[in-house]
Design a protein around this nucleic acid. Structure first.
Lengths: 200, 200
DNA sequence: TATTTGCATACTAACAAGCGTTAGTTAGCT
DNA sequence: AGCTAACTAACGCTTGTTAGTATGCAAATA
């Protein structure tokens, strides 16, 4: 791990607790054991740290959903794969994900608008999955937009409660969330079709 | 509305966009059309604004859930009433609710710990409802803790997307969310029992 | 092998601006 | 007379960031 990566790692870790505005360069420097001015040998600005975190993760989410929508699957299978990927990304680096969820608001313009656009695309891709499920008769005819919002709120709130040192693995979290959500989405008469719920 | 209330209202409105740390007294003063020092004729400190917002809303949530658990209802009825109350509180003052959800982390100690305790109690009361549903055979035998987390994540994320000027009323949001969640909670063979889903 | 170059990493000192907040005062309304 | 709500001036401290400099190690050169 380069020094640059070390700086970013500690910065993100601290941003999780202090927030973007609350984390000062001098606070970060103290944790790194150096002077505030020295940080600028490794990064360009405080904003840059936030931009790196937000856009690196956004890229990961984007790739995951595009891959799912590229492969031929039925809607429940696509949804399971997407949920699994999303949860994996979040749990893999919980600090970064927490900052991603909470602090993107403080991205400087035009980065903030760019970020919102990326999120819009992500949501639109997920909506395609829900719509496919409805069109194919797997899912109840609910409002897809509403379903996406509710799905994502459940997925994203993982950062609020997940404990990497606890007994739940990323896969278990994904399976539980999927089973909860798929029940809300599936047509009532399809609940016996357990093949739609992958083995855990 | 007293001047004190006006100050708080504008402050909360601005905190929604700038965050607690990002909102400065001089920025708030400019929006109020006065000098920063003048604000202190109406409030004691910047922290006090945050504390008022967080604890006022916490009180509302607490009262709502205690009332629901006081009345004799079955679990689905209790849950519907709770969802309705929660959504009402959130939609009634979206600015305050947004600050409540995002900025409680920046409460000064010991207020922060006190806030977390109140939230813990709220979650425990909701868990009672889920547990009642399981014990009475209405709900699937899912992990109640997990169900509460998922339920609350859906309820709380309303602040991320709800538009008071849109075409959705608070009651409609509550009904939709309830129908989505109750489907995930109910036993499969009970889905035909539409009486469990209140008329919309 | 000895010397030089260059990069990585840290430092001190400082800047201009901004921070929350206090003290003391003034104007107008009841 | 007393209350409400504003003001100016200032305090001590913190903010992100720049400029210029020193040190130690690794690769390149003599």
């Amino acid at each position: 791990m380069t020094r640059k990566e070390q700086v970013r790692k500690i910065a993100v870790q601290m941003m999780k607790f202090h927030g973007f505005s609350g984390l000062t360069m001098r606070l970060l420097a103290k944790e790194l054991g150096i002077e505030a001015a020295s940080i600028y040998n490794h990064i360009q600005s405080k904003d840059e740290i936030l931009e790196t975190v937000c856009f690196d993760l956004a890229k990961e989410f984007e790739l995951a959903v595009l891959e799912v929508n590229d492969i031929y699957f039925n809607a429940p299978e696509k949804l399971y794969t997407l949920v699994k990927s999303h949860v994996d990304i979040v749990c893999k680096d919980l600090d970064a994900s927490t900052v991603f969820m909470h602090e993107w608001r403080y991205l400087p313009e035009p980065s903030r608008l760019e970020f919102l656009e990326k999120r819009r695309v992500y949501e639109a891709e997920i909506r395609k999955i829900i719509q496919l499920g409805i069109d194919n008769g797997d899912f109840d005819a609910i409002d897809p937009k509403f379903a996406v919002i509710t799905l994502l709120s459940a997925l994203n709130s993982i950062v609020e409660w997940y404990n990497p040192k606890g007994d739940l693995q990323s896969k278990e979290v994904a399976d539980r969330l999927y089973q909860f959500i798929i029940k809300a989405l599936l047509k009532p008469n399809m609940h016996a079709q357990s093949f739609l719920i992958p083995n855990t």
